[in-house]
Design a binder for these strands. Structure first.
Length: 271
DNA sequence: ATAATCACCTGCTCGC
DNA sequence: TGCGAGCAGGTGATTA
């Protein structure tokens, strides 16, 4: 589920319900996520007051004076607020109980996500070091992408999805942005002109911003529990549309695999 | 350093 | 209706 718009939507959704709250208890039913949840996480969190929720790449960060809670939703994770006492279901692995009487519930069927702790004073967390710029900042521009791509021989789609280059561009939005920029996903990253990278950056920013505005592609409601789907899915131009007609020229969209990821594009509109 | 592949897990859809 | 195959929005680790 979560690409950057979903994570940002989650951040905005949960932050008002967390801010000003003290963590009263941590309940871990399943500590085995992508990495084990630290055994002493409860001790670190209990009694701490939450001031804000931040995001870096697709990580959600809750900073405290003595350390930072790091959460990642992986492929299938979600966070939502429910009343304390609400029975947990099959994949509800972690509850963070709050002084408000609600709890933040982490659900993740595939368990590709992570919940970690970074103590203050330690060197930066390895997961957060060496990440590329945020896609919606000025640091991410056509010049930057052009420079980074020189002598790179990977398909431009793989290049765009590399978190060391730029964070937060997952499979859906990489497909969409390349279509809107008119660039074939399998073109070698090092052979694309500066002008075309300027266009690509513009389209990446545009598609991400639009999706955030609409609450992501498939995200379910994190506050209530009555899953509201995101509204962006119906506006996707290529993702999930292999074999269907291009919305721009009517040609049949082709679907291929690129770096193990499903890739859809239009042979006529993308060069 | 770069590129390609593997791995982690569960659930769902598809074809037989 | 059952069953195996293949696939899914991520990304670090491992291999050449």
């Amino acid at each position: 589920m979560p690409e950057l718009p979903e994570v940002e939507t989650t951040r905005r959704g949960i932050e008002p319900h967390l801010r000003g709250n003290t963590i009263t208890r941590l309940v871990v039913r399943q500590p085995r996520l992508r990495w084990p949840i630290p055994a002493d996480l409860g001790a670190a969190l209990t009694g701490s007051a939450i001031e804000r929720v931040e995001r870096r790449a697709k990580y959600l960060l809750v900073p405290f004076a003595h350390g930072t809670l790091i959460m990642h939703l992986g492929m299938s994770g979600s966070l939502r607020l429910v009343p304390i006492g609400q029975p947990a279901e099959k994949h509800d692995h972690v509850d963070i109980e709050l002084s408000s009487g609600q709890l933040l519930r982490y659900t993740d069927p595939r368990r590709f996500g992570a919940i970690l702790w970074q103590a203050s004073g330690e060197p930066g967390h390895p997961l957060l070091e060496n990440l590329g710029p945020e896609p919606l900042t000025d640091a991410f521009d056509g010049d930057y992408l052009f420079q980074r791509s020189r002598r790179r021989n990977v398909p431009v789609k793989s290049f765009l999805m590399d978190g060391h280059v730029v964070v937060g561009v997952g499979n859906i939005y990489a497909n969409e942005a390349l279509f809107s920029a008119g660039i074939r996903p399998d073109r070698s990253a090092g052979k694309i002109s500066r002008e075309r990278y300027v266009r690509l950056v513009d389209e990446v920013k545009r598609v991400l911003a639009r999706s955030i505005k609409q609450g992501g592609t498939t995200l379910r409601n994190f506050v209530g529990g009555d899953g509201k789907p995101g509204y962006f899915r119906q506006q996707l131009l290529v993702y999930g549309r292999g074999g269907e007609a291009c919305r721009q020229c009517e040609a049949i969209l082709v679907e291929v695999r690129l770096g193990q990821r499903s890739t859809v594009y239009c042979r006529r509109c993308q060069r």
